[in-house]
Design a protein around this nucleic acid. Sequence first.
RNA 1: GCCGGGAUGGCGGAACUGGCAGACGCAGCGGACUUAAAAUCCGCAGGGCCGAAAGGCCUGUGGGGGUUCGAGUCCCCCUCUCGGCACCA
Length: 856
Amino acid sequence: MAERPEVTNPPQQRQSEDRYDPQRIEEKWHARWQADPALFAAEPHSSKRKKYYVLEMLPYPSGALHMGHVRNYAIGDALARYMWMRGYNVLHPMGWDAFGLPAENAAIKNKVPPRKWTLQNIEHMKQQMKRLGFAYDWSREVTTCLPEYYRWNQWFFLKLYEKGLAYRKKSKVNWCPECATVLANEQVVGGMCWRHEETPVEQRELEQWFVRTTKYADELLRGLDQLEAWPEKVRTMQRNWIGRSEGALVDFKVEGPSGPAGDKITVFTTRIDTIYGATSIQLAPEHPLVADLVSADPDLGAKIEELAREQTRAREQDVVEAIEKHGVFTGRHAINPFNQEKVPIWVANYILMGYGTGAIMSVPAHDERDFEFAQKYGLEVRIVILPRRTGEPATSGEPESPMLPYTAMDSLLINSGEFSQLSNEEAIAKMTAFAEQHGFGKGTVTYRLKDWGISRQRYWGTPIPMVYCEKDGVVPVPEDQLPVLLPENVDITLQGGSPLGRVPEFVNAKCPKCGGPARRETDTMDTFVDSSWYFYRYTNAQLNDRPLDTATIDYWFPIDQYIGGVEHAILHLIYSRFWTRFMRDQGMVHNDEPATRLFTQGMVIKDGAKMSKSKGNVVSPDDMVAQFGADSTRMYSLFATSPDRELDWQEAGVEGVHRFLGRAYRFVMRHASTARVSAPRDGASPVSPKARNIQRKLHQTIRRVTEDFQGRWHFNTSVAAIMEFVNELYGAEDEIATGKFPPALLAEVQHKLVLLLAPFAPYLAAELWEAIGERDQLLRYPWPEYDPALAKEEEITYAVQINGKLRSHVAVAAECPEDTVRERVLADEKVKAAVEGKQIVKVIVVPGKLVNVVVR
RNA sequence: GCCGGGAUGGCGGAACUGGCAGACGCAGCGGACUUAAAAUCCGCAGGGCCGAAAGGCCUGUGGGGGUUCGAGUCCCCCUCUCGGCACCA
């Protein structure tokens, strides 16, 4: 660094140096940063630098940022700035998840078109983000409600359709009467709508578009094992959601006359080894065979309808507890193919049509639910497995009567024909093979994960690019006719049916095949489609002939660090992982997963409750910025606790950070002229013990902050470390004032302090950087290195314990060998007094820390 | 019920692989500066007991046991709390 001529401050500026005035500083730099959009822009993918892609989940433009956003972005921004200073080519983009129902609700309430409402909100929130000083590359901004973006949703949809991964199906779907639209399974929470916690979801039969997420079920599951840098919690949640279970399908022949639904019942079981204990078949009330079986008896039909209603009610209960089990005997029987035994066929309210085949074999002795049911209705309980006693030959020993139901897998089969005496694992394998050989069953894998229903009967979303022709049926809109534009000036109500259906100009279309009259699809896509691939678009947001460029993506992907709320652990993150795999199989990308590292930050709460308008405990970021400045607001959100934990917002805490930034500001400003004239020399030899302390503390602080970035991300301790350092600097003011303190060291301290502050308090750092005479871009300036030798203590104070109780302290030179430490400790007056007349059993020396003298 | 977090001063939280519990900040108390206040700067501070003080002793990380020279940290049992899942055969 070259020496710089001293610049004398004009008097009016001098006055402002005493007081830390965030408004003045932040407005000044805000204006400068706005004038230079290239400042936070990523270099093109031809860059020779190593890339780093840090991404925060894009917000829904609801109107204004809340503290949860601020926290999320403060974490990402600190990381982005740190990585810039580490020399990486950083991609740090931002965008808007701009389609969705709130815009329609606002339209109804305030008579503002959704588009206008959304774009206004975006404008406002973007200004908030800029005012908070987040360093985004706005040239890559993505807004999902604009045709430039959503046309590619349509394009992807056509590709999915082409590959058979998008299909249309009439099915029972989740319907929220409040939203007046269909919901995906992932959007139903405990039987309630995810947006209306009070509103039970109804089941409706509708023609819907589905995306075949189940095609990748197994890969999505296995992929989780590789995602070691994802929170275990998220991985577990996804595993449970995908819900893979291995088992077998077994056909039971129905005795007597058969109807249109066939003459057999296929059950799914994970415990084929217990099939000799099956004493009934249980069907879901909605099972297709039920109608056939009970057609003769209207009484039965009514009872079964009641069972179906009980299931629906159970789903609607908000205290989610299993309902009481009920069932009805159909009067019919089926044949167990293993032992040719006749078993009664029942219909029960605890059997779900949506899982497996909607039919089970009931084995009361070895299944909790079947046991409970059998007890109630007096069905036979037959034991076919027994606990295997350790060390005992499999064949001997009298059968110990197990506690029923006995479900463990550590047992042996009995009463199971040729399979008796096998272990569970062996039996499952052999019996599955047996069923396959004889053509009445096979091994199979079942998932809880269902295909993704993406049709929404709403206006404000991506139109599904399909038309229905009387002659040609379902016809996709050709690629070159995209986008299918979302019409404006649409009458939006929440009274049933897609609003687009009421726009004749939209609905009436020409069939792309025959040119004849056709009707357009009037449903729109679930907005989770938009967010399933937006992060790819950032790499090349301006492309207008393709959704993305593979070579660019190869450079930037996978995302190095993705940061967002845990509430997206299932929906968004499973869909994104699915989408990535689809794209990979089309050769569009070469990565399997979208993001290598995921971080889920904790919620922001206030007074022990989640911030919400209804509770009236919302703290507005704007108010905080106006009172304390953006730097203090951001830094507090990092300082209050570690980023993964819940954050209890305390305004006094923001004030405390504000005070600290003032201290840092005043220290640097007070000695800015020294920094400007003295070339800082790294590792300049200090002349006083105090100066040496400062130097050591400087290097220790750099180490602590750097390690927090590299490791645990406990930025609360990083900030604490910088605070300690500044406190230490105030302790050296006397020497600085008297000129005892080496100016070169002071200059070094000031430079590095500013660099350490840069990721957390970017405005203040920029101001101070300029004040100490630097003109280089702070963000491109290398992050300070620490010197372990300079960070090292010369003298160590050992804690001395007698029998584990702290009794004294003994200071020795750091290099002091263990034996000498021991001698010095035993020579200590307090130690001598404490061991007086006792026998020293042993002396434990923990190098650098503590000595424990054990006496008797 | 199952899975996963968490419980540390008046408050938010530190203590990373077992090694001085309470870093840092807030609130509090005392002092300096000031005509005064604010701001700022300096200092004290887990609780209890003894002492004029220096200091000393006891006690303390949700509860109960254990391992260890030594436990907030490891093991067993329990309580409370926050999330997620929940008749998935």
